Simulated scan of single mutants.
Amino acid sequence: MARTGRRPGPTSTRESIVAAAAECFAAQGFDATSMRGVAAAAGVDSALVRRFFGSKEQLFTEVATALIVPERALAAVAAGAPDAAGARLVRYFLSLLGDVSQPGPFFGLIRSAVDSEHAAALLRRLLADRVLGELATSFRSENAELGAALAASQLVGLAVARYAVRLDALTAAGTEDLIPWVAPVVQSYLTGTRIS
């Protein structure tokens, strides 16, 4: 009698679905991405996607938590002199976004946050609270919460202007060209020090 069900041994199906979903969210945003479309992109049956993830919101959560790993971000930004944390944060953030001509799946999270309250809440929790909030708190700023929110607004605004609106000067500039402009502002938000 033939066996049914999952084949024995390791499987990468779940990871393939998450990768396909990340690409779909990046290309289409949250609202336009469907479970059926993700299944087609992953080369699996849509019932399997539902069995693994249940809903599009849960699938998006899985994609977001795979892309935004607060511990990794904090380690990348915390390694080095405190007065250069803003530069490290901007560099890390831009590396997540990828090349201007072909943004990576992280931009899909930002793009999806415009369409979906679920995506916006998740981005707030992972990026603003867990990463930027903890960074601002580590600087013992009196206005850590406001500083984290302002840093998030700066970084998300940069992402939208560069990758979605595609302002010519921002798309032409390289990462190392942008850092000296953006980093001092982000640094001031994290430390609670106003630029005069």
Score class of each variant (00 low, 15 high):
residue 121 A to L: 12
residue 104 G to I: 10
residue 109 L to I: 10
residue 80 G to M: 03
residue 80 G to D: 02
residue 114 V to M: 10
residue 123 L to I: 08
residue 118 H to F: 10
residue 129 D to K: 09
residue 126 L to Y: 00
residue 99 D to E: 14
residue 93 F to I: 01
residue 119 A to D: 02
residue 123 L to W: 01
residue 124 R to M: 08
residue 130 R to W: 06
residue 85 A to T: 12
residue 98 G to Y: 14
residue 92 Y to T: 11
residue 77 V to Q: 04
residue 103 P to T: 03
residue 129 D to P: 03
residue 95 S to N: 13
residue 79 A to Y: 00
residue 118 H to K: 03
residue 129 D to I: 03
residue 93 F to N: 07
residue 115 D to M: 05
residue 81 A to G: 09
residue 128 A to E: 14
residue 131 V to R: 00
residue 77 V to K: 04
residue 99 D to R: 13
residue 110 I to Q: 01
residue 110 I to E: 04
residue 111 R to C: 02
residue 84 A to K: 08
residue 75 A to W: 14
residue 105 P to Y: 12
residue 75 A to L: 13
residue 135 L to Y: 05
residue 116 S to C: 06
residue 112 S to R: 04
residue 84 A to P: 02
residue 135 L to H: 12
residue 84 A to E: 14
residue 102 Q to E: 09
residue 79 A to F: 03
residue 131 V to C: 03
residue 75 A to C: 14
residue 114 V to S: 14
residue 120 A to V: 07
residue 125 R to A: 13
residue 128 A to C: 11
residue 74 L to S: 03
residue 100 V to P: 06
residue 128 A to G: 08
residue 130 R to K: 07
residue 75 A to Q: 15
residue 112 S to G: 15
residue 93 F to T: 06
residue 122 L to N: 04
residue 97 L to R: 00
residue 86 G to N: 07
residue 133 G to I: 01
residue 80 G to A: 00
residue 76 A to T: 15
residue 126 L to N: 07
residue 103 P to D: 04
residue 112 S to K: 04
residue 91 R to M: 15
residue 114 V to T: 05
residue 129 D to T: 08
residue 100 V to F: 10
residue 126 L to K: 05
residue 87 A to T: 10
residue 77 V to N: 07
residue 103 P to N: 09
residue 123 L to Q: 05
residue 94 L to E: 13
residue 98 G to I: 15
residue 127 L to P: 00
residue 127 L to Y: 11
residue 87 A to E: 13
residue 122 L to S: 04
residue 98 G to M: 02
residue 125 R to K: 13
residue 107 F to L: 15
residue 98 G to N: 10
residue 122 L to W: 05
residue 100 V to D: 12
residue 125 R to S: 14
residue 112 S to T: 11
residue 119 A to H: 06
residue 114 V to C: 04
residue 97 L to W: 01
residue 75 A to F: 05
residue 114 V to Y: 14
residue 101 S to D: 13
residue 124 R to K: 12
residue 135 L to D: 02
residue 94 L to D: 07
